[in-house]
Design a protein around this nucleic acid. Structure first.
Lengths: 121, 121
DNA sequence: CTGCATCCGACCGGATACTG
DNA sequence: CAGTATCCGGTCGGATGCAG
């Protein structure tokens, strides 16, 4: 019993901390959604992004983008220093490493919605 | 299933909403961590849970557990109505459907930590 | 157009104390 | 032990206005 628990605690904390790290970086309501849009659309401008991701305010989007850029998921490209400024955001190669995460989440979310419809427990 | 390069703009919103649904249910700082602990430990009592997941307060843990129970990820088992009350939480079969999500997140988190150590960009 | 600054209300969550 | 109630400070984030 003690032995099993000890083993479990070992791998568990490892797993826990890994997931914790992941959530710390890509957690929150918006980050993954922004990454998804950038990955699937390619170059996207600020307002375009805001329109695509319904519900996000300019303020929050701005903060999220800064955060994502700091962590290497997003690259900010300025096309013109004159007004009107043109800025595009693109996803980095590193953000592609999130593909499996996004896929499994998407898959699960799809199934979950089905289950919710099926039975209301 | 699909050619990733040609993932349609049409299915983008599909993907987005699926991930959004997933995040809505299992998002947040704690939910996945609680699920992980319950899956790996089996039966866990409230205080044990709080001790294992460092940083969570009783109040928050209580709320999260209620939420997880409502969504069918966790089952609450009362062993005794007398004081001291004995309660155990266990993960449900449905929570096992999150395995792929947890695995991909854990995998990514592990790699990410390595990359962070490697280069500080 | 792309944001940042500010104000300000809502809400999250810690600390503490309490109950069964 | 397993929570709940209350207080309360901090943060989140919407709205608005403005600047480059």
């Amino acid at each position: 019993m003690e032995n099993e628990e000890t083993i479990c605690r070992g791998s568990c904390s490892e797993n826990l901390s890994a997931v914790e790290d992941a959530i710390y970086v890509i957690g929150g309501k918006w980050k993954l959604k922004i990454i998804i849009v950038l990955q699937e659309f390619g170059n996207v401008r600020f307002n375009e992004l805001q329109r695509t991701i319904s519900g996000i305010s300019a303020r929050v989007l701005s903060n999220e983008l800064k955060d994502l850029e700091l962590n290497g998921f997003v690259k900010r490209i300025v096309h013109s220093e004159q007004t009107p400024v043109l800025v595009e955001y693109i996803s980095t190669d590193y953000s592609k490493t999130l593909k499996p995460v996004i896929m499994s989440l998407s898959e699960w979310g799809k199934n979950h919605k089905q289950n919710i419809k099926a039975d209301a427990f």
